[in-house]
């Protein structure tokens, strides 16, 4: 693809800046949703509290801890590639990947149980509860769904990183892709850090 020499440059700092800018757009993307959440919750305080009781705090806490651990392991993988420990890096990325998938499986069962009870946008059951509950679950599915989509993208990215580290394309002198994947993964973590109290702890 390279048409001219400029494409070959490697600029760690520049690539990282690009990733940070992307993270800012993600923050604003979810920021819009947080504004919607804040306004809805302000107008339907009691209903949100009641609806929040429908969510399982244990699963929520469990998933939070899973994401926090995965964040730590991916951060460690960046340290280990700098220390030239290739195999350790792959193992740490592998742990991150497994944790991400466990998170998704939990989410799947959590959503599945809710949908079985008819708690899904547009159903009669939900509408009978009233406006506040309808909005709460609407936001719940929309925000956690969008977050889960980001997790899925993260899983793909982490898998690609594992292959690249394994093949030696990412090494102690060229690891900005791994670092950027890490930044992305921490962002996903931060968003969950806020989603967790807003949905699970609001009861």
């Amino acid at each position: 693809m390279t048409e001219h020499s400029v494409h070959d440059h490697y600029d760690h700092e520049g690539s990282k800046l690009g990733m940070w800018l992307f993270i800012f757009t993600e923050l604003l993307f979810f920021g819009g949703l947080f504004i919607v959440y804040a306004v809805m919750r302000y107008k339907n305080e009691t209903a949100f509290a009641l609806a929040g009781e429908g969510l399982d705090v244990f699963i929520g806490t469990f998933n939070t801890i899973i994401l926090l651990v995965s964040s730590a392991t991916i951060a460690m993988s960046i340290s280990s590639i700098q220390m030239k420990k290739k195999n350790l890096t792959v193992v740490l990325l592998g742990i991150t990947l497994v944790l991400a998938i466990v998170f998704l499986i939990n989410k799947y069962y959590e959503w599945g149980a809710k949908i079985e009870h008819g708690l899904f946008p547009g159903t009669e059951t939900l509408h009978q509860f009233g406006h506040g509950e309808t909005l709460f679950f609407g936001l719940y599915y929309f925000m956690t769904g969008l977050h889960a989509l980001h997790i899925i993208i993260g899983v793909v990215l982490i898998a690609v990183m594992m292959v690249k580290v394994h093949k030696g394309k990412i090494h102690e002198d060229r690891f900005v892709q791994l670092e950027n994947t890490g930044l992305y993964w921490h962002l996903v973590d931060i968003i969950w850090i806020f989603l967790f109290p807003l949905f699970y702890l609001i009861a």
Partner: peptide
């Protein structure tokens, strides 16, 4: 929510 804020500061600054 304040705790969530504190947690995100930790993630931002160290992770």
């Amino acid at each position: 929510l304040s705790i969530a804020g504190l947690k995100s500061v930790l993630v931002f600054s160290i992770f």
